[in-house]
């Protein structure tokens, strides 16, 4: 048996080769910076508020990771957020007074998310449409549906939603528990081999087919999981804003994809992981804060944000290259 110390040493040695290494470094750097320039950044109040605001992106990025690992892409998550948002709010309003108001609204929201993912999955597998185009199409469709359900912002959401969502237990916010629970679920899927099989589809779809994997089923499931995570994100947004908004998710599709890429997952599919996407999403959110506290003029904030993302992605690519040559070097030494 290995001792704990040995295991730890081995882990820290392998760290630079982890896909999320880069986003981790940037994250630590940002956190240190914010410690200096961010006034009171580390107060408990600020951190819990921040985390709540990050939550939707974290969730969408997790869902997006499934799809990207399986060799796909989901551009429709943004308007799916809006659709789930308005469906939930409409149901809350029409069921107001019923004892099942809340569970029905939440389950229906999740149901819409999973169904939308299923439709995306069917389009890219059985109809063989390219993911980028077909999910761009469904993005427009979900958006249109959302406007049909609620044509402008508004609607009554019980304030208890916000109270629960912003509550803390033992000093830890509700959203952290929710995320932990979901990560446990992701870990379970990893240990059942689902994620590996999904990576196989993304890495070499012919090979996966020849290895008798249920390729279509796996890819559809990845889109359904993405829909599931997106619907949870939408519900978090409802709880945070306590109102409905048919345009609430705009920008999330590209932001989630950037988070996944920053986290070291290959956009071509087949390689990467979930922890990276979480770190990548937080990095994206922190960029804004860092720029803000650095005192950069408003006019430069967007520019700086774009440059940092490109730099981080470029550094990530460099790192992958180094790791490949390192692996090859290691082999050579052995031979």
């Amino acid at each position: 048996m290995k001792s704990k110390k040995e295991t730890f040493l081995q882990f820290s040695k392998s760290l630079p080769r982890k896909p999320y290494f880069l986003s981790m470094i940037i994250l630590i750097f940002f956190f240190i910076m914010l410690g200096f320039i961010g006034r009171n950044y580390y107060s408990a109040y600020n951190l819990t508020t921040k985390f709540r605001l990050w939550m939707p992106l974290l969730l969408v990025a997790l869902g997006q990771t499934f799809v990207i690992l399986g060799g796909g892409l989901d551009m429709s998550v943004s308007s799916l957020l809006a659709l789930v948002n308005v469906v939930t709010v409409r149901l809350l309003m029409s069921l107001s007074g019923s004892p099942f108001q809340v569970p029905i609204a939440i389950l229906a929201g999740i149901g819409v998310g999973i169904t939308a993912g299923f439709v995306n999955g069917l389009l890219v597998t059985y109809l063989r449409l390219p993911p980028l185009i077909s999910t761009y199409g469904t993005q427009i469709v979900w958006g249109g549906l959302a406007l049909r359900v609620l044509h402008q912002s508004g609607g009554e959401v019980p304030f208890s939603w916000y109270t629960v969502y912003s509550s803390t237990f033992l000093g830890i916010p509700f959203s952290v528990y929710l995320l932990a629970l979901l990560l446990l679920g992701v870990y379970y899927l990893k240990r059942t081999g689902f994620v590996t099989q999904l990576k196989a589809c993304g890495g070499n779809i012919h090979g996966a087919y020849e290895s008798v994997l249920p390729v279509n089923k796996l890819r559809i499931q990845s889109y359904m999981l993405c829909g599931f995570f997106a619907s949870l994100a939408a519900i978090c947004i409802v709880a945070e804003t306590v109102t409905g908004n048919p345009l609430s998710g705009s920008g999330y599709e590209l932001e989630s994809i950037s988070a996944v890429a920053l986290g070291g997952t290959s956009l071509a599919g087949g390689a990467g992981g979930f922890l990276g996407s979480i770190l990548g999403a937080i990095v994206l959110k922190l960029i804004n804060d860092v720029i803000f506290f650095a005192g950069l003029g408003v006019n430069y904030q967007v520019l700086a944000q774009g440059l940092i993302i490109i730099l981080a992605l470029a550094a990530g690519g460099q790192l992958t290259k180094q790791n490949t040559s390192r692996a090859q070097l290691k082999r050579r030494k052995k031979v």
Partner: peptide, 20 residues
């Protein structure tokens, strides 16, 4: 070859027939 380049040797050999 039907191997998945991104996966490990073990994952490739056991792909779809993982012992549970």
């Amino acid at each position: 070859l039907s191997l998945i380049p991104q996966l490990s040797i073990e994952e490739n050999i056991m792909l779809g027939i993982e012992p549970r």
